[in-house]
């Protein structure tokens, strides 16, 4: 199988301590959850997948995306989308400009680009928000913009780094449904990194530790 994200015997060690040991396949639209306490190598795994490994770590194995070996590629060449617990919207750009930043240059023409941005906002229940200052949005609205910005860049895979931990319980449930729904609808392989069991179960996929121990097998959808 070539579609999706494949971690091929990926190990990361620091000195003689093994932090990550994974051999996994994530099909399009599937979510793999990596769960563990802080300091267990989750963020190291993410930095390796993004293509910005921290210094001092030894990485072996391969990361394949749609059959392509990502070895030697920087973050902007990999086209792997990122969502953090902070929305990290660019504060100097409007909501629409934030989305425009992500939209590939191959989408040409002002009207076409604006239409794509408007459609993305609509899908996030934020129609008409393009000119707004991101700082004036609510936390949930900002989180939705951040996800749409990520999806507009047409990522081939998605990394979710504790994306819900800053949201309160109600919002959290809505946001989870929204994110997981979009991931499945767009058919993107995703890795969710979390220390929250509820998030992990809601993702509906396989739940493992950074060292590959299976906590929960995938639920049939």
């Amino acid at each position: 199988m070539t579609d999706g994200l494949r971690l091929d015997l990926l190990t990361i060690t620091l000195g003689d301590r093994r932090l990550v040991d994974l051999d996994e396949c994530i099909a399009p639209g599937e979510i793999l959850t990596v769960m563990g306490p802080s300091g267990s190598g989750k963020s190291t795994l993410l930095s390796v997948l993004i293509g910005q490994p921290d210094q001092g770590f030894d990485v072996s194995g391969r990361v394949l995306l749609d059959g392509q070996d990502l070895q030697g590629m920087g973050p902007q060449a990999r086209r792997i989308g990122l969502l953090f617990q902070d929305d990290l919207l660019f504060p100097h750009l409007s909501v629409g400009e934030n989305l425009g930043f992500a939209l590939p240059a191959s989408v040409r023409g002002r009207a076409a680009r604006e239409a794509r941005i408007a459609a993305a906002l609509e899908a996030a229940d934020l129609a008409g928000f393009a000119a707004r200052d991101p700082a004036t949005l609510s936390g949930g609205q900002r989180a939705r913009v951040a996800l749409m910005r990520c999806l507009l860049s047409a990522p081939r895979a998605l990394l979710l780094d504790e994306p819900f931990s800053r949201l309160d319980a109600d919002l959290r449930r809505q946001m989870r449904d929204f994110v997981f729904g979009r991931v499945r609808a767009e058919g993107i392989p995703a890795i969710l990194v979390t220390h929250d069991l509820e998030d992990a179960l809601a993702a509906g996929g396989k739940v493992i530790s950074p060292l590959g121990e299976v906590r929960q097998t995938a639920k049939p959808a």
């Binding site: 902007q76 990122l82 660019f90």
Partner: peptide
């Protein structure tokens, strides 16, 4: 620096990140 990482993951090169972000 996560802002830079996010911009890179959205496909921006180092120079675009510097000048635009």
């Amino acid at each position: 620096s996560r802002q830079g990482l996010v911009a890179a993951s959205l496909g921006a090169g180092a120079n675009r990140i510097l000048w635009r972000v």
